Simulated scan of single mutants.
Amino acid sequence: MAELPAPVELPLTERSSPMALHTQLVRFVLVGALSAVVDFGLLVALMAAGLGHTPAKALSFVAGTTTAYLVNRRWTFRAEPSRRRFTAVVVLYAVTFALQVGLFSLLFGRLVDAGLGRLAVQVVAFVIAQGVATTVNFVVQRAVIFRLR
């Protein structure tokens, strides 16, 4: 089986002691907010262009999580590039992709059926799905992925 290619990333030039949980959590939330803007902005734009809610959410998720990984690896967790870590992130993002897109699609259908307006449905379904995925991501990244070498 062929190895996954290493991600194209610049190495860190300095290693510091591990950051406190509070600092990592604050940074993770800030990066998450930036990534959510990328994700939600693309979601709304793709749906406005006529793409269905599930494929639009799938594409926006990829853009948002790619942004999150690249910034979190360097700024939040201060981790060097690693094939092993990259592979673990791909697996984690596959799980959170299924979780987030599935939850968004389920909520979208139910909220539309409940009579909420389209934008309200997008916002509510997005926030709930994003919140669940963000929690899973932080716990797994801090406890497992960014401890890998």
Rank of each mutant, 00 (worst) to 15 (best):
I128Q: 11
M19T: 14
V95A: 14
V62Y: 06
L51P: 02
S105Y: 01
A33W: 12
V101I: 06
V91F: 05
R147Q: 12
Q130F: 13
L43A: 02
G64Q: 02
L12Y: 05
A143C: 09
R15H: 14
L99N: 04
V136G: 08
L34I: 11
A114I: 05
R74M: 13
L116V: 00
L42S: 04
I128A: 14
M19L: 15
M47D: 07
A45K: 06
H22E: 15
P81T: 08
S105W: 01
Q130H: 14
A58L: 11
R85C: 00
A36F: 12
I145W: 01
F126W: 06
R84M: 05
R110G: 03
R84T: 14
L107E: 03
S35A: 15
Y69Q: 09
R149N: 11
T67S: 15
V29S: 13
Q100A: 12
A56S: 14
E14M: 13
V90P: 00
L25R: 11
Q122P: 01
V71M: 06
T76Q: 09
R118W: 12
P5A: 10
A133Q: 01
R84S: 12
R147C: 02
V8T: 08
L30H: 11
T66R: 01
G52W: 02
R85D: 00
A33H: 05
S16A: 13
R149Q: 13
G102S: 05
P5H: 08
M1Y: 10
R83H: 06
L25S: 09
S82N: 12
L106W: 13
F97E: 02
P5Q: 06
E14N: 05
V89M: 13
A36E: 07
L59N: 02
P7Y: 02
E80A: 14
P81W: 08
V127Y: 09
Y93L: 05
V31I: 10
A133N: 00
R73C: 05
L42Q: 00
L10S: 13
F40H: 04
F40A: 03
Q122D: 12
L99T: 10
R84Q: 12
F28T: 04
V71Y: 01
H53D: 10
A143Y: 09
G115W: 04
A94S: 13
P11A: 08
Y93D: 06
A94G: 15
T134V: 09
V44A: 08
F104S: 00
I128M: 09
V140C: 09
Y93Q: 08
Q122F: 09
V112Y: 04
Y69L: 14
S60R: 00
A98T: 10
L103N: 02
E14F: 12
E14D: 12
V144H: 12
R118K: 07
N72I: 11
A143T: 14
V124P: 03
V8W: 03
L59P: 02
R15G: 04
R147A: 05
V132K: 04
L10Q: 13
T135A: 14
L46P: 00
L111W: 11
A98G: 15
V29C: 15
R147N: 09
R118D: 12
R74K: 15
G102E: 05
V90Y: 01
